[in-house]
Amino acid sequence: MIQESARSGERESGRAGSESTSRPHDLPPSRAAADALAERLAELLSRCALKNQRAFADLYQLTAAKLYGVALRILRRQDWAEEVLQECYVNIWNHAADYAAAKSAPLTWMTSIVRNRCLDWLRRPQTEATGDEYDIAVEAWRDDSPGPLESLVASSEAAALARCLQQLETKQRQSIMLAFFNGLSHSELASHMQQPLGTVKTWVRRGLERLKGCLSGA
């Protein structure tokens, strides 16, 4: 996978630096790589806040494929995803100074900007999804196979999240993942899963509650 090779490259460069000596030994290597990436992105964002265009180019280089993947999956149209991505990066440049106040992981902060913009985009009435463009993407999730979850565990960036998702009931997990990755609304979920709206809403709500409990160690 491209994703994996990109990560291992990051890991090596992280290790070559001075950080390898100060990093706690109990962290798995991929976790250490994720932390190194987060540190790097936070540093780039702070330089973007000072209007350093070189830092902004590096930031784009490191994150664009990830964020474009997120946008494309939700919007299902390349031209829309490109436009949203473009807007979001200009936004990130303009608001880089706000990042420090957000107190979240840099990639989470950037991903939230893209996801929120995509969901706003879908609010426009003329962008209503026409039907089965997303079925192909969704096919992989239809059965109980962990699929993308496995890559999460492998990346161990979000191992706890993946473990907690796997503990949900199948329907709860499916509806949460369809909503998250494909941007499906409650009614789209209901028609896609061929279930009454109320049932799907309950799956989502209970799933989120259990997820929160599991992540807090309850």
């Binding site: 993947g69 490109e82 979240s104 902060w109 990346s155």
Partner: peptide, 24 residues
């Protein structure tokens, strides 16, 4: 956001066309 958004790490990475960076 801290709880759920890391899930995006499981989405496949797709490099955007070069014109996006040009415009940005």
């Amino acid at each position: 956001e801290e709880r759920i958004t890391p899930l995006a790490g499981a989405a496949s990475e797709i490099p955007p066309p070069a014109r996006v960076w040009k415009a940005v």
